[in-house]
Simulated scan of single mutants.
Amino acid sequence: MEQLFTLDSLITLFMLVLLQAVLGFDNLLYISLESKKAPAAKQSFVRKMGVGLAIILRIVLLFALMSLIQYFQKPFAALHGNDILEFEFNVHSVIVLAGGVFIIYTAVKEIWHMMLFHEHESNEESSKKGSINMIIFWIVIMNLVFSFDSILSALALTSGMEYASQLTLMTIAIVAGGILMIVLADKVSNFLQKNRMYEVLGLFILLIVGIMLLSEGGHLAHLHLFGNPITPMSKTTFYFVIVVLVLIDIVQGRYQKKLLAQKELRENSFKNKKADL
């Protein structure tokens, strides 16, 4: 335990907390959007409860991964020598693939509802009231899915340390990252609530998150389609796509305001001419 109080350990702890924050961005977005399905008065409670339970389960998952990591990585189903499809599934790849499919489904469903059923908001409140437990459940489950990469990366960062020090540092980082997520989740949700136009942007970012998880899961499963390997989307590419989406949204929003201002100016000019006649 003496390793905990060295400069190297403190730097490692800082890197672990930073890692939890960076890799938790997509999770944070999902929590903010998922919690909106709850009644307005319960949304903050849902976010806090979901992340709080997820912190506890993340620590349990940490113990499990440190003890059983070889079983998570061990293939249980494989297909080789096929020109169309090859794979080597393990528990880790299946969890990541399932998470990607679910997030894509959630994003597409919400975009579809936003386009077609937005006018039925008055009927939504009654259906939301009975779904709080389910919303918390999905927040916890998806938090665990997102936590796999962060925990595995943290294990790599702390490799070489003694077991007790490694476990302590990672537990502190998980708790600190969870508290940070609770604080930021309310801020992100409030921002989206006040700026409803960014909901579409958030949902498409969530869609990209799902695609990123699918590519990661396919890579972990050594998936080949028609002889071509599935390669994971890098974090650099992911953040670049997000920046592009945000820039497009900003430019489109300002251009739309400009068009509306020009339209209003033409209408006022037409009214003034009509009044002069």
Score class of each variant (00 low, 15 high):
252 Q>C: 08
236 T>L: 03
63 F>Q: 08
271 K>G: 08
266 R>H: 14
157 L>I: 04
219 H>S: 10
208 I>Y: 04
208 I>H: 05
181 M>H: 05
252 Q>H: 12
108 V>W: 14
163 Y>S: 00
204 F>T: 08
210 G>M: 03
84 I>K: 09
102 F>S: 05
192 L>H: 00
40 A>I: 13
150 S>Y: 12
172 I>G: 06
83 D>V: 08
65 L>V: 02
225 L>K: 11
277 L>I: 15
4 L>V: 01
258 K>A: 13
8 D>S: 08
221 A>K: 05
51 V>P: 12
221 A>I: 10
13 L>F: 01
116 L>F: 09
25 F>P: 04
169 L>V: 00
207 L>R: 03
156 A>I: 02
108 V>I: 15
260 L>Q: 03
18 L>R: 05
145 V>T: 14
22 V>R: 00
212 M>K: 07
215 S>W: 02
122 S>M: 14
113 H>V: 03
130 G>V: 05
271 K>H: 14
25 F>K: 06
191 F>A: 13
181 M>A: 12
224 H>C: 11
137 F>R: 01
21 A>S: 03
212 M>S: 06
43 Q>S: 05
47 R>A: 12
151 I>K: 01
163 Y>L: 01
146 F>A: 00
270 F>W: 11
50 G>H: 02
135 I>H: 01
85 L>Q: 01
194 K>Y: 09
165 S>T: 14
58 R>H: 07
230 I>H: 06
259 L>P: 09
27 N>G: 06
137 F>S: 05
114 M>S: 15
183 V>L: 14
7 L>Q: 13
41 A>Q: 14
21 A>W: 15
44 S>A: 10
74 K>N: 10
99 G>K: 00
200 V>T: 14
102 F>E: 07
79 L>C: 10
277 L>P: 12
273 K>H: 07
203 L>P: 07
156 A>F: 06
20 Q>D: 15
175 V>E: 00
242 I>Q: 07
161 M>W: 08
69 I>R: 12
68 L>E: 06
251 V>G: 08
217 G>R: 04
